[in-house]
Amino acid sequence: MTKSNEYTDSSRATVNRRSFLKGSGAVAAATALHSPAVEAEPQAAANVVSGATTITLNVNGGDHKVTVEPRTTLLEALRSQLELTGAKPVSSDGSSGASTVLVDGKPVMASTTLAMAVTGKNIETVESLGGEDTDAVPRAFVKHDAQQCGFCTPGFVVAVRALLNKNPDATESQIRQGLNGNICRCGTYNNIIKAALDVVKGGV
């Protein structure tokens, strides 16, 4: 089987099937597939956290200290401690997409992300797209009247931004496909698609 060259450098050397299974031997050890038998890490038990703990979250380019419990979601930390109320609580299980934020550039649901799980990661909320130098996506939403009640809007704005960061020339069908994880109960989808297409065309 021919493999792309970019994945055949030494750090991604192939792993022998038997050593992979047994988890021993030089080939497996040379890759990231540490076996228990050759595990270099000592027995240091990982830090078990319980109760309120102060952690640092990097949000919109700055470090912020928040005090959270293990069960605190990223959405709760953003809204109730950092006063970043753009991301919205709609569904508890993330099915609405209204709590979409970017973590290391990828769109994720803050409502199903634990705050402690994103320490050390780069978190961007819808607020980072506003301010004096407002991003083209929220400007296009205003221009095309792409909101009705507005509750889903921040999630859609972040999702469109994430989609266009990955694919700046997205077609209408790619935009429709990409926004499937966001729901608008008012049904203002057409104007959201128009706004996203306008950003692609550089019209805002």
């Binding site: 990982a46 956290v49 109760g51 419990e69 293990p70 069960r71 402690m116």
Partner: peptide
Amino acid sequence: NFEYAAPCS
């Protein structure tokens, strides 16, 4: 509430 750990190995 629960305990939380993020081990590295």
